[in-house]
Simulated scan of single mutants.
Amino acid sequence: MLLLLSASSLAAGAADCPRKFDTAEIIEAANATEKAFTKLDKPGFRTGQADVESRMVCASEILSPAAQARIHRVQTLGAFLDGRMDRVPVALSGLFAAEPGHQIPASLLPDGHPIRGLVPSAMAYLRDDPGVELPKPGSGWIEADGAHSLRAATQRSSLLQQLDGQGAVLATHYRWPDEAGFDWVVPVAGAKPSAVATRNLSESHAVVESKPAGPWAHRAPLLALAGTSLVTSGVLFALAADARAEFDASPVLDSGASADEEADYRAELTTIQGDANGFSYGCYATLGVGVALGVVTVVTW
């Protein structure tokens, strides 16, 4: 099957490229391949798919999102023709990762085509992917689906490009999530890869690491408490202001009021004043707590 060139053959192909191909030439090959698909020309499609793959590994430049999407699209069609329906949503997911909002033309896949029915499954593969650590090639970096990344997807296919320190393309590789190792990476003198990435270069099964918690994760409770305290302080301040405004707006007791009326009047004013004072004290206390927690968070950062 021509569904996927092996990692070793892709690496060898990149090293033995008769010439380099730009984005336009890769899209040109994809156009011819998809044309064969619409004509039900399976041999023509196989030849075209191989041409797309060979041009891809010999890419001369960083591939545009459109070009990457077209490569994923060809691999999706190839998986379908091979009867690998398990790989169809995986490749489709890579397509939508490379170019979000990509629209597959109806001339290629009419409404009701089985591939279209797998789009929801493909979208699900975009979520909660722990990823596998990529090797650090040295002075350059690796881009996954057009973005600088330290990890490769483990739930969907991805298009990886290794760049040197000046941004020139050293290698391009189409990676399926069940693929182990990164022997297509071109060794470059420079920084040492991490222990996990080093193992992934040669192990038969790639090691998946969970993403480490962010540097602020263990301070989240302090930040939450500080924020809650400050918000509460603001609410209490508003209540205190309302109570004081109500106290100031209280009408003057009529000079002819009875003793009972005067007692009720004074009791009401005392209650309003007590509320205002209570809200004020609460405002100052929660403000102090919020500031203190904020200071502790900053000092221990």
Rank of each mutant, 00 (worst) to 15 (best):
K136C: 10
T286C: 14
N277L: 14
T38E: 05
A144M: 03
Y284D: 12
D41P: 12
R87N: 07
K192Y: 09
A226M: 12
G112T: 14
S157K: 01
A144Q: 04
D41N: 15
A259R: 15
V119L: 05
P221C: 08
L293T: 01
L159M: 02
A217T: 11
Q273L: 14
A285S: 12
A220M: 07
G234Q: 07
G48Q: 00
L2R: 13
T198L: 13
A257E: 09
A59Y: 00
A36V: 05
L10S: 08
A243I: 01
A189W: 02
I272F: 14
D86C: 10
S202E: 10
D111Y: 15
F80H: 09
D41V: 13
R19H: 13
E203G: 10
A189P: 07
H102K: 13
L5T: 11
H218V: 15
T232Q: 15
D86F: 15
D145W: 06
A59D: 03
L3T: 12
I26S: 05
R199W: 04
K35P: 05
P114C: 08
T286V: 09
D254P: 04
L81W: 14
P89C: 06
A240I: 05
D145R: 04
G181I: 09
S233H: 02
A122Q: 00
S255V: 14
K136I: 08
A238Q: 13
Q161C: 06
Q75H: 14
P215R: 05
G101K: 15
V296D: 07
I26R: 02
A243C: 11
P65L: 01
E25M: 14
T286R: 12
S54H: 08
V57T: 02
S250I: 03
L225K: 03
G138F: 01
V185R: 02
V169Y: 00
G101D: 10
Y281L: 13
A285C: 13
F45G: 12
A180L: 01
T270L: 15
G83N: 08
D128G: 01
V57C: 05
R73V: 01
P43F: 09
E246K: 14
R46C: 07
T228V: 13
Q49T: 10
V299A: 12
R19F: 10
A32P: 06
